[in-house]
Amino acid sequence: MSIILCRRRLLGTGALGAGGLILSGCDKLNANPAFRSALIEAGSWHEGAQRALGSGALAREYSEADMSPNFRVNGNTNPEDASYKSHAATDFAGWTLSVDGLVKRPLALPMTAIKAMQQRKQITRHDCVEGWSAIGQWQGPQLGQILSMAGLLPSARYAVFHCADRFGSSPYYESIDLVDAFHPQTILAWEMNGQPLSIGHGAPLRLRVERQLGYKQAKYVMRIELRDSLAGLFGGKGGYWEDAHDYQWYAGI
């Protein structure tokens, strides 16, 4: 009996010790570059699985009755940039979207041209990485239409969105691959819930890439750059949050 009691005490002490080791050990592993990149690698298999199982799937679209009564704003809600502010003062009448990089015909599209293109209107769910969701209606031309106008060079692999907002000294940017760029629900929205996009929601143009999380929905889009690689651009990970905090570049999960 005393042997059993000893064993019990030993196991109890062991469990407590193991608990402490787990906690400090996890933080050490979290900071260990090899372990961390192994975790990131395993996480990226979700991208492969989702691409293999449903690269053409459509995100669910909702009816007007399903919409959030109050769609909250998030991230940067009022860019400080002087040039942006002067555009805002004139309701973005002089805003142009540049499309350049690996394209046959670089474009400079004024807002009137973007609004005159064939439009797609969709009521979709915006899923923030933090966990909340809001449902709103978005309207704008399909990104694929704009990219086709510019004509992609065969080496183009990614569409990079350069934005007018910044965190500290880092400009906001995001990128998607061509599967998402030519997905029918990927649009450049200038209208939300039947109104021109508000500044808080990304006026005058924001990306909607519906099968990914909120941080991919770049606001204040000034320029779309077609690239063959994300390396060499800012932190090289394809987006502001990806560079700054190791958010997943593929934000379908």
């Binding site: 933080d27 395993a42 996480g43 997943q248």
Partner: peptide, 19 residues
């Protein structure tokens, strides 16, 4: 995990061990 606030790091662990 981790013990300091980091949504990004927690997601790295969560999405890997989910497998």
């Amino acid at each position: 995990i981790p013990s300091n606030y980091s949504l990004a790091d927690a997601r790295i662990w969560h999405l890997a061990f989910a497998w």
